[in-house]
Design a protein around this nucleic acid. Structure first.
Length: 553
RNA sequence: GACCCCGUAGCUCAGUUGGAUAGAGCAUCAGCCUUCUAAGCUGAGGGUCGCGCGUUCGAAUCGCGCCGGGGUCGCCA
């Protein structure tokens, strides 16, 4: 219904501008959505306010002019009950009951596709997230990034983007060497050899487990016969394989999907780092100073130029990263989304600068951080320390609270905000737990199915859905696609979680005010259709969040 | 010192990118199950949207300046 009114308004705006001799600016936009207060109709439009700047008139005056034109055009339409001027320039639409309820037929028809859009048509997105170094198990922080990234991937696909999700695997560099040496040291230790543990080595128990694994499953003590260089290299490769196996298992359990794991090492092997620096050089963004190579990132908004190749001849972390992003560009992706930990915050300007040199327009680059999570137990923060090797892993978390609760809690807040994660609440099967609130609504509806003897039918009299609770619920359901587009545009999946809570709230309210199944067969059919439409929205939405949709609870 | 993020009810947070009288949940208090799932619903109390200017038809939202909290600033990764 909304789209029909939108078409109407667009036509009228054009006419009106023509009448006033004004030109509608490029990208002219206005709002049309259900107002907060249902007294203001079913759909409220602020187009007159927006036009005020164009025609330089008072909003109320414009609104009156638009109303005239609207009345002429919509005389033959049956879905608008009445239109009203209000609030100094708002145009409010009151839909007929069948006009309002028409969305239910649409939902029923589209079913699994309801909410899809072509918003992202033509956008090929490469979505990079988690990218945790394979130097230990995934932590809570990675868990949040994983949940948010995966939800966004699902949402972007649903709104018409082509999406490729990727994990950048840092399998080269200093941290890898350190890991290899740590494992090698533990290997020696387990075999009773004297060997000092590296100063900045990884202390966690898992390092010893990897060493033990090598001894038991692979090499026994044969590494001792190799040269140290070879032995350490072997330990490194084995450790990465071992840890990535564990990481991939965690991600699979969390229902997080990656289309690809991109190895940093291949960038060196294929000389893509040199290639990337050549590209920078060719475009005039590279210079030499103090024996090092610098990227002139200040030209593109960074506050300092950055070294890409040290005077020692080694690359900095930035060099392979530029090469990686060049690969993204060369693989044809025209939109970049990266989720990083908050510690990488200061790194964003330089990479954005690099991406612009590589060919991305600024508006195609979405690099954001996901803030940390603090776990709470019995009202007290759970202490986590990576250094001491005694941190709460992602695995411990989802084994304790379950994947549904973990995913929901991780995405329910704006990712730029710090998250307080209440473990007791997430486990509690009670009214306080927000994830159950949604699932409960779904289960309640599912239990109604047995009352629909011949199934859900669309041959219903929509006029029977006449109460405020029904109108509110229908209005809410009709906005699904809007919220998904918003979530896509802002790359913020929490907006979907928030919307679904609204849907559930509207449904619970409707359900407790009115009986669905009554003696009145016509009313029953109409309400069953409404309930089923709600089920479809909840199911599609929960699926996008990667949360199960129980039939009973 | 520079830059970034945050500041909304006692607590945790929304607020549809500038729209109408700022909303939820928790907590507190008072109610609702012989009828479809009470993991739910209804009602009450609770606010200088950190402070001050400005931009305009209109500001919690945008700009500038303060105050308060957090973070980042390596030829580390």
């Amino acid at each position: 219904m909304k789209s029909k009114i939108e078409i109407l308004i667009n036509a009228v705006v054009d006419d009106y501008c023509g009448l006033k001799g004004a030109t509608k600016p490029e990208g002219f936009a206005y709002d049309l959505h259900p107002p907060k207060d249902s007294q203001h109709g079913d759909l409220s439009c602020n187009v007159a306010f927006k036009l005020a700047k164009v025609t330089r008139q008072k909003p109320a005056e414009i609104a009156a002019g638009l109303m005239n034109l609207l009345e002429q055009k919509s005389a033959q339409d049956s879905f608008v009950e009445k239109m009203e001027l209000a609030g100094g320039g708002f145009i409010n639409f009151y839909l007929t009951k069948s006009g309002l309820g028409a969305v239910l037929l649409e939902i029923h028809k589209q079913d699994k596709n309801y909410g899809k859009s072509e918003f992202g048509k033509g956008k090929k997105v490469i979505l990079e997230f988690v990218s945790a170094n394979p130097t230990g198990p995934l932590t809570i922080a990675h868990g949040r990034q994983a949940a948010i990234g995966d939800c966004l991937a699902r949402i972007l696909k649903f709104t018409g983007h082509t999406v490729h999700s990727e994990y950048y695997l840092n399998d080269a560099g200093r941290q890898m060497r350190m890991l290899a040496q740590s494992v090698w040291a533990r290997y020696n230790e387990l075999l009773g050899m004297e060997m000092p543990f590296p100063e900045d080595g990884y202390q966690g128990d898992y390092v010893r487990e990897i060493a033990r694994d090598i001894i038991e499953k692979e090499k026994k003590d044969s590494l001792l016969k190799e040269s140290e260089e070879k032995a350490v290299e072997y330990c490194g490769l084995y450790a990465v394989k071992y840890l990535m196996g564990s990481i991939e298992e965690d991600l699979a359990k969390m229902r997080v999907h990656f289309d690809n794991y991109f190895s940093e090492k291949t960038l060196y092997v294929k000389h893509e780092v040199e290639h990337a620096l050549e590209v920078l050089k060719g475009r005039g963004y590279l210079y030499e100073s103090e024996g090092a190579l610098w990227f002139r990132s200040t030209d593109l908004g960074d506050d300092k130029d950055r070294v890409v190749k040290k005077s020692t001849g080694e690359y900095t972390y930035l060099a392979p990263d530029i090469a990686y992003h060049l690969s993204k560009y060369e693989r044809g992706y025209n939109m970049l989304v990266n989720f990083w930990g908050p510690d990488h915050h200061g790194y964003i300007p330089r990479l954005k600068a690099a991406c612009q040199v590589l060919g991305y327009p600024p508006e195609a680059i979405h690099i954001g951080t996901v803030q940390l999570t603090t776990l709470f137990r019995k009202g007290q923060p759970v202490r986590m320390s990576t250094r001491a090797g005694e941190f709460v892993t992602l695995r411990e978390l989802y084994e304790e609270v379950g994947v549904d609760a973990a995913r929901f809690f991780f995405v329910m807040r704006r990712q730029e905000s710090h998250l307080d994660f209440d473990l007791d609440l997430a486990k509690e099967q009670s009214q306080e737990n927000p994830v159950y609130y949604l699932q409960y609504a779904h289960a309640r509806i599912a239990s109604l199915a047995k009352y629909a003897e011949q199934g859900i039918t669309t041959k219903v009299d929509l006029k029977r859905l006449a109460t405020p609770e029904e109108a509110e619920l229908i209005g809410c359901l009709s906005q699904f696609s809007d919220y998904l587009i918003q979530a896509s545009r802002s790359t913020e999946p929490y907006r979907l979680a928030d919307y679904l809570r609204q849907v559930a709230a509207c449904f619970h309210k409707f359900y407790s005010h009115h009986r669905v199944v009554t003696e009145d067969q016509e009313l029953t059919k109409a309400r069953l259709l409404l309930a089923d439409a709600t089920r479809i929205v909840l199911r599609n939405g929960l699926e996008l969040l990667g949360i199960s949709q129980p039939e009973s609870m």
